[in-house]
Design a protein around this nucleic acid. Structure first.
Lengths: 218, 218
DNA sequence: GCCCGACTGGGTCAACCGTCCCAGTTCTCT
DNA sequence: AGAGAACTGGGACGGTTGACCCAGTCGGGC
């Protein structure tokens, strides 16, 4: 008998549930499958959680946090804005290809949350977090390339997340990597076209970047 | 005892299943829920279908066909390409807002098909059909506005479907109609920017549309 | 050492599920 | 009219599910 504090057992059960959902989908993540994966008894499940839905809520919160950490934007390295955006999309795509079942699970969990009374707010929070991440990416890219966005950033962020989700679904269905990569490149080009150079307000003592350099590099 | 031929009973069961999935999701579409909705006995279910999966396969085929019919592109009426594309997106958005649970069900069925051995090909066929519809829309819009696409059409079609799916999910989660409409407008603008006027091969006796008229109208 | 709370794990419960069984009814064909 | 196929519908089956039960063990505090 190895004793674990309840909090530790909860963590292990949630980690196990992440793996089970990824492998079998939400419907396959029964309490028995989860405890089997965690190497525990069924009673331990109910000792640690009052219900399966409580575990699912915590599962959603956990996987969203992990996703945000994994996809935190890196310092922009592209020579052009388009390059930077494309690199961001391709970084996500590498992440998707490395573990397709994970992204499929994210999408399934969204639908599950929307369908489960009491969990709707988690789906909302999930998508707010994605929008924040997209906003951060857009701001970072704009700053690195000396541009500003010609559309309201919430719209651009929504569109960026939509493109990501939509191309993900298409890829999960057809596994056409070339087409997905091309679509991500097209997505990057689309968004890049809503940028314009930031005009310098006044001449400064610093050597300023010429306004036409954006055109020259694209 | 009202006698029905098996084919009629199958149709009624599928129609009932469409309603049940829309209301309760795939997990809630049990054989008992479906027959209750159809006003039949459970034995009639198994008389008409050899298994629940057989009914689900037919359900997917049916709802995809209905979706394609509902979203068949209309004659382009926009004054500019951007307008035409935006109108197409907004027509879809009206369709979504009129029955959100229907589009949510479509997405859920995709995931269900991907998760169910033997049904994967239905998900693929679903997305091929969407791409064909998008391709038709793009061709129709290009012809109406005298432009051609500067990106391969499969890429543009994939992106158009991705934008549709992605904005749908975002709206299902947050029900922010203004943001969704703005995102659809931005999506239309994005795609419109991958068009260029079709050059006339040779001067003709017909009055030709001036090449700069596209810029003037946008 | 004792007590109490935290923890463990085997077992059980009622409800639900997809599938199957089977007797009865109806319809069509000969 | 009779036979056979198509159809009807109530019930049963074995399996699965989330949740609960409960006796036993362990650890910490007094």
């Amino acid at each position: 008998m190895t004793r674990l504090p309840a909090a530790e057992r909860r963590t292990r059960l949630v980690d196990a549930a992440v793996r089970v959902v990824a492998e079998r989908g939400v419907a396959g993540a029964t309490t028995r499958a989860i405890v089997a994966e965690a190497g525990m008894s069924l009673a331990s499940f109910h000792y640690a959680f009052t219900s399966r839905d409580e575990l699912m809520a915590e599962l959603i919160t956990t996987v969203v946090a992990h996703e945000l950490t994994a996809l935190r934007p890196e310092l922009p390295t592209g020579r052009t804005l388009h390059d930077t955006l494309r690199e961001g999309f391709m970084r996500y795509f590498d992440h998707l290809v490395a573990a397709p079942e994970r992204e499929a699970a994210m999408l399934e969990l969204t639908h599950y949350a929307l369908r489960t009374p009491g969990l709707e707010a988690l789906a909302e929070r999930q998508y707010e977090s994605y929008a924040e991440l997209a906003t951060l990416s857009l701001a970072s890219a704009a700053a690195a390339h000396g541009v500003r966005w010609t559309r309201p950033v919430p719209e651009l962020a929504t569109t960026l997340v939509a493109l990501t989700d939509g191309i993900t679904i298409a890829w999960l269905v057809n596994r056409d990597g070339e087409l997905a990569a091309a679509a991500f490149d097209l997505a990057a080009a689309s968004i890049a076209r809503f940028a314009e150079p930031v005009a310098e307000p006044v001449p400064s003592a610093h050597s300023s970047r010429p306004a036409h350099s954006l055109e020259a590099t694209s």
